[in-house]
Amino acid sequence: MNETLDALPESARRVARLLSERGHAKPVVMLAETGKTSAEAAAGLGCSVAQIAKSILFRRKEDDAPVLVIASGANRVDEKKVAARVGELGRADARFVREKTGYAIGGVCPIGHVTPPVTLIDKDLLALDSLWAAAGHPHAVFNLTPQELIALTDAPVVDVALRETA
């Protein structure tokens, strides 16, 4: 699964360089199958769905700012919880995602965005030892710890998960 930098797609190369510049030693890995969904990525990596740190982008209605929620692949994001922290949210279509992040949907990395987003990290990720996040391309991922994710993004850790009530 390990790739040399030259073999990576350009968007994944950009992420690999950025990670290296920030002192992150683990390589960008290319999956044979797409990692567009948490389940696909987990199956390709042989890890649990919860270990996928999925990047979900919203549009803040007030000012069109990108809002990035990095959530456990096992969780659905509670938009009301996110809106309570950052303001009313709107949907981010594919054009908005590409324009604000520089990445295609399915490959949105937690870092290296064209427009720095308001970022929140799902507190449930802190219960895990190892995470996998998208690395700028639907087939590219990288491994990190929850602490490394916090350090790379400088984002607050909050409860963003939709909790089903009985």
Rank of each mutant, 00 (worst) to 15 (best):
P110I: 08
R98W: 03
A74D: 15
R22M: 09
E21F: 10
R59W: 07
R60Q: 11
V82Y: 11
M30V: 08
G102M: 03
T34E: 09
C109M: 01
K26C: 09
I56K: 06
A151Y: 04
D122Y: 11
V77N: 04
H139S: 13
R60H: 06
E33C: 15
L120Q: 05
G112M: 09
I150R: 12
P27M: 10
I52A: 08
T101G: 06
P66Y: 02
R85W: 05
T145L: 00
D159Q: 15
G112V: 07
A151H: 13
L120W: 11
V97C: 04
L45K: 05
I111G: 03
L131C: 11
P110W: 07
L45G: 06
V118T: 08
T119W: 01
A42K: 06
D129P: 15
P138C: 14
R59L: 09
G112N: 08
E21Y: 03
G35V: 02
D122E: 10
V67F: 06
V29K: 00
G35E: 03
I70D: 02
F96V: 01
A104H: 12
C47A: 14
E79Y: 03
V49N: 15
P117S: 00
S48M: 14
L31A: 03
I150K: 12
K80S: 15
Q147C: 09
T37H: 07
K54W: 03
G73A: 11
L45F: 10
F58S: 00
V118K: 00
V77A: 05
A39M: 11
N75V: 01
H137Y: 04
V29A: 00
H24E: 08
D124K: 09
A43P: 04
G44I: 02
K123V: 13
I70N: 01
G112D: 11
L89C: 14
N75H: 14
S38G: 15
A84M: 13
G112C: 10
I121V: 07
R163A: 13
E148L: 10
A71T: 14
S130R: 15
I56D: 00
A140S: 08
T145R: 05
Y103Q: 00
R22G: 04
K123A: 14
K123N: 02
K81N: 05
I56Y: 01
L131R: 06
M30W: 01
